[in-house]
């Protein structure tokens, strides 16, 4: 069984204790595209995102049913969560570089997966930073602490860190909500370049961001996937009235 770049979710439900957080979700996320999840706070979009690399496993009282397939692999039927997370990287809302050098941040993942040779690690660090369009900025600061970088640089470093293990899918949970417009623009541009090699699923509260960068958009409300379609269609001619009311700011 191989990890692919498409995600297929069928009849998925998720409970946090008694709370029914995701209700009968069915979604087909295409490979090498950017898919945006939008919806009000608490609608389940981040919860679904976290299912794709089993981040919810650690949440007490969390019960998940249904099928989650990445390529051919049913990810809740495999015991090898490390292999899953090697294929599915994640970038969080708040930049979270490790308190170590830029170099060691990027090399952390590959080292965890057994790469020890310096030359190989050098190559991975350079490639990852180049993919994240940071090599020129950081090539002379590789041994400096990552905590000394600006917020925008830290977040791009986190993307570079996710890229170091060549994931097939990158999950992004509001990756630019804490950043200024210039850093946001750089990350959006980066997403456009990364989709040539990886599938990107991004949770965002910024609807203009969803329209700018995504190919597909899913609108969530109270645990339901209300509408999923091409981004152009969702933002110019949504089929569901709830989607229309939310994206036009008339929700409530």
């Amino acid at each position: 069984m191989e990890y692919g770049q498409n995600i297929s979710v069928k009849q998925a439900d998720l409970y946090y204790g008694d709370f029914h957080a995701l209700k009968n979700i069915n979604i087909e996320i295409p490979a090498k595209k950017i898919t945006a999840f939008i919806g009000p706070s608490g609608c389940g979009k981040s919860t679904l995102l976290k299912c794709f690399n089993r981040m919810n496993d650690l949440v007490e009282g969390c019960k998940i049913t249904g099928e989650f397939k990445i390529g051919e692999v049913d990810i809740y039927k495999t015991n090898d969560v490390n292999a899953l997370r090697k294929n599915v990287g994640m970038v969080f809302q708040k930049p979270n570089p490790f308190p170590m050098s830029v170099y060691d941040n990027i090399a952390y993942g590959p080292r965890t997966f057994g790469i020890k040779k310096r030359a190989q690690l050098d190559e991975i660090v350079e490639r990852s930073l180049k993919q994240a369009a940071m090599w020129d900025e950081l090539k002379d600061r590789l041994n400096k602490s990552a905590l000394g970088l600006s917020g925008g640089q830290q977040q791009r470093l986190c993307i570079a860190r996710a890229l170091s293990i060549s994931p097939k899918i990158i999950l992004m949970d509001e990756p630019t909500s804490a950043l200024d417009p210039i850093s946001t623009g750089k990350i959006e541009e980066l997403c456009g370049e990364l989709k040539e090699q990886a599938t990107i699923v991004i949770v965002t509260h910024n609807m203009q961001q969803a329209t700018r960068i995504s190919d597909k958009t899913g609108f969530f409300l109270l645990g339901d996937l209300v509408e999923f379609g091409d981004t152009d269609q969702i933002f110019t001619n949504p089929k569901n009235e709830k989607t229309e009311n939310y994206i036009t700011g008339r929700f409530g």
Binding site: M207, Q208, T211, F235, T236, N237, E244, I247, T248
Partner: peptide, 9 residues
């Protein structure tokens, strides 16, 4: 207002 959907139309 950066309108979308019907507002944009």
């Amino acid at each position: 207002q950066q309108p979308v959907a019907r507002d944009f139309r």
